[in-house]
Computed example of a mutant assay.
Amino acid sequence: MGEEIKTVLIVDDEENARIGLSKLLSQEGYQVSSAANAGEALEYLSREPVSLVISDINMPEMNGLSFLREIHNHHPGTHVIMITAYGGVESYLEAMNLGAFEYIHKPVKLDELKSVMRKIAN
């Protein structure tokens, strides 16, 4: 913790979610990239370091929890916020145990997201 967030990678199989979050965060001054799935995101992370990953939990091929595990194994300094429309207590606990900084329910509210991002920076 204690580092300024400059670059954000949004990972979500729903295009509208990626576009919406990208626009909101870009307007706030962040450099934002996006990926449609975990495999694409891992490939991106192997080339470009980011300050923060915001990832959906429910994705095809590799779900967000498996993706979170991969991030922490290969990019341990990267902060991760998990987002979901379907999550329950079990997925929340698993995400937090795997090292997620926070777990936010969709639809993501900009004020809530900014508050979590401020906590990461402090």
Rank of each mutant, 00 (worst) to 15 (best):
L68Y: 02
S66G: 13
L9A: 06
E112R: 12
E15L: 11
E43V: 06
N122F: 01
P49C: 04
S66K: 15
G29S: 12
A121E: 13
M62D: 09
N63I: 15
E3Q: 11
M1K: 13
S34E: 11
P76N: 06
G2A: 07
Q31V: 05
G2P: 12
E94N: 09
Y92F: 03
A95N: 08
Y103R: 12
A85R: 08
S22L: 05
H75N: 10
S22T: 10
M82V: 11
S33N: 11
V116S: 03
M96W: 02
E90T: 14
E43C: 06
I71V: 14
L42C: 13
P76A: 03
K6S: 07
D111V: 07
E70T: 10
S51N: 14
N97Q: 15
N122T: 10
V108S: 07
S26N: 13
K119A: 04
L93G: 03
K23S: 11
S66V: 15
S66L: 13
F67E: 07
G39M: 04
A35K: 14
T7N: 05
L45G: 01
E40T: 14
S26C: 07
A121D: 08
V80A: 05
D13Y: 02
K23N: 13
L98Q: 12
T7Q: 04
E40V: 14
V116Y: 00
V32R: 00
E48M: 09
L9M: 06
S33H: 08
P107H: 03
L21W: 02
P60A: 01
L21C: 07
N16L: 10
N122L: 10
V50L: 01
A36E: 13
A36F: 04
A41N: 12
A35W: 10
G64D: 14
E3M: 10
A100V: 15
N122I: 13
L9N: 05
L9R: 05
L45R: 04
M82Y: 03
A85F: 00
S55F: 03
D12G: 05
M62Y: 04
K119E: 07
R18W: 03
S66M: 15
F101T: 12
E61V: 15
M82K: 06
E4S: 07
G64M: 13
A85M: 14
Y103G: 12
F101I: 08
I54D: 00
Q31H: 09
N37W: 06
A121F: 01
V108H: 03
A85Y: 05
I83R: 04
M96G: 11
G39F: 00
E4D: 10
K6F: 00
T78G: 01
G77R: 15
V8G: 01
E3W: 01
A95Q: 09
N58E: 14
G77D: 15
A17E: 12
S34F: 04
F101E: 13
D13P: 04
L110F: 02
E43W: 01
E4V: 08
S46A: 12
E28T: 10
I19N: 09
I5E: 00
E43L: 07
G77Y: 09
N16K: 11
N63Y: 00
I83L: 06
D12H: 07
L98A: 09
